[in-house]
């Protein structure tokens, strides 16, 4: 057993590499050779994880991945536990339908981070995803539970159709954020292009946000400012085209 399993990109994929076998909890019982034998799809053709990554370490719930992973899709998909740290940017479907554990990306992520499989009713059902950069469209789409933090800008329709959970965006949240959201929260520290089906409720200090921000500061070392921690937020209830029990909390700069 090692302190961590480390995957280092040795051969850059030339086409989309679907590597949804990469999940921290799955590696707890696998040796380095077994990990290298896990199936991936490169441009629609079958391949092995070891064809692209060198594997160091084995049997650990802590996983680190390094390299330019913008063409690598499905990292952390279905993950149920453990810690996955990515040094670099990743492709689409990061943490798709994950159920637990923590994913910490030191870079940007493509579309559908924490989202659902095509046609599935639920996206992530637990765990945490921290993206230290921008996120593509539909981050947290159909999430049932869990937390997604985007320290950069979020693409269109972040949190689309969320059932519960939290999407926190430090930067700008593009059009359609929270559309068809049933419950759940979108916390916007920057500008947000709010759907017309959200209605203003009040401006107040949500008591759970200091807890969340202090946790993120402690656990991930994120630079949370006191103005955001102690500040006031506008609450918009929605999506009123759906259940209407969700919310957009938008920080009020004072």
């Amino acid at each position: 057993m090692s302190d961590a399993v480390v995957l280092t990109l040795a051969t850059a994929p030339t086409r989309p590499l679907v590597a949804d076998c990469i999940a921290a909890d799955r590696f707890t019982s696998l040796g380095a050779r077994d990990i290298g034998q896990l199936p991936v799809t490169h441009g629609g053709r079958r391949a092995r994880l070891g064809d692209f990554f060198t594997v160091t370490g084995e049997r650990s719930a802590t996983l680190r991945i390094a390299g330019d992973l913008t063409k690598v899709e499905g990292i952390g998909a279905g993950m149920a536990g453990g810690d996955l740290v990515v040094d670099g940017s990743v492709g689409r479907d990061l943490g798709r339908a994950m159920a637990g554990g923590r994913i910490d990306v030191h870079g940007s992520a493509g579309e559908n981070a924490g989202g659902a499989l095509p046609g599935a009713a639920r996206g992530m059902t637990g765990g945490e995803i921290v993206i230290r950069g921008g996120a593509g469209a539909q981050a947290g789409a159909a999430a049932r539970r869990g937390l997604i933090v985007v320290t950069g800008d979020a693409g269109p329709q972040a949190g689309r159709g969320m059932i519960a959970g939290t999407v926190l965006v430090f930067g700008r949240a593009a059009a359609g954020a929270g559309r068809f959201l049933k419950r759940g929260s979108i916390v916007a520290l920057g500008a947000i292009d709010r759907p017309a089906t959200f209605r203003y409720a009040c401006t107040y200090r949500p008591p759970h946000l200091p807890l969340l921000f202090r946790y993120l500061r402690t656990r991930y070392g994120l630079a949370m400012g006191d103005p955001q921690i102690t500040g006031r937020y506008e609450r918009y209830s929605g999506d009123l085209a759906e259940l209407g029990k969700g919310e957009i909390l938008q920080w009020v700069a004072e």
């Binding site: 539970r145 107040y204 200090r205 949500p206 008591p207 807890l211 969340l212 656990r219």
Partner: peptide, 22 residues
């Protein structure tokens, strides 16, 4: 009411006239 899981613990947010009770 709504709940939030933060750091593995669940908290309940109860709407009250002042704002929310956690």
């Amino acid at each position: 009411q709504a709940s939030k899981v933060i750091g593995g613990k669940r908290y309940w947010r109860l709407p009250v006239m002042e704002g929310e009770f956690l």
